[in-house]
């Protein structure tokens, strides 16, 4: 009996579309599980912290807050292979649109000038994460081993990478599997 490959995913500054695309593998998920994939901490299992020695860590979304920075570093410590999944994790994506502006400007627009905002209070408290000055792709914070670009990546691309990794091969995205949009 083969040993199970533990897969863990987290969701940073993104829209969860990549996780939806992950679930969109449908019956191929069963294939992967039959071939030896097992989930540890993921939004699907509602667990937050993967165990040490997890085989594959998948990160969706860019790094925009100090909490996300810590989470991403935690993933690197606990996982042997890190995959950046989706355009936000790979390139920075839509959240980098705010890099044009200062964080104070962004807060002011969202919590003070917004047409639907009547209280005009900035959110405050120790529990709330701090915005980083710039939104960064994951590879600016930690070392990333494999990249699956796409907004979202197709289920076929995710399957290609995971199935190759479970077999112990090096995945490579080519042709229609490689897409920036």
């Amino acid at each position: 009996m083969k040993t199970k490959k533990l897969v863990s995913t987290i969701w940073c500054e993104g829209c969860s579309g990549c996780h939806m695309s992950f679930l969109d593998m449908d019956e191929k998920l069963v294939d992967l599980i039959k071939n030896g994939m097992a989930f540890s901490a993921t939004p699907f299992t509602d667990l937050k912290i993967p165990p040490h020695g997890t085989d594959i860590g998948i990160i969706e979304g860019s790094v925009a807050t100090d909490t996300q920075e810590e989470e991403v570093k935690m993933m690197r410590e606990r996982c042997k292979i890190i995959i950046a999944m989706g355009d936000c994790a790979v390139f920075g994506g839509i959240p980098t649109m705010r890099n044009r502006y200062e964080t104070t400007e962004i807060f002011s627009r969202a919590y003070k000038q917004a047409e639907t905002n009547y209280n005009q209070h900035l959110p405050a408290g120790e529990d709330i994460s701090k915005l980083l000055a710039k939104v960064k792709p994951v590879n600016e914070v930690i070392k990333v081993d494999y990249y699956i670009p796409g907004c979202p990546p197709t289920p076929e691309a995710i399957y290609e990478v995971l199935s190759k990794l479970i077999e112990g091969k090096t995945p490579e995205l080519k042709g229609k599997l490689l897409s920036y949009e």
């Binding site: 950046a84 790979v90 390139f91 920075g92 980098t96 890099n99 960064k136 792709p137 590879n139 600016e140 990333v144 990249y147 699956i148 670009p149 490579e172 995205l173 080519k174 490689l178």
Partner: peptide, 11 residues
């Protein structure tokens, strides 16, 4: 060319 990420900071 199979470019799947950038090595350098963007924007």
């Amino acid at each position: 060319t199979g470019l799947d990420h950038f090595h350098f900071p963007t924007f």
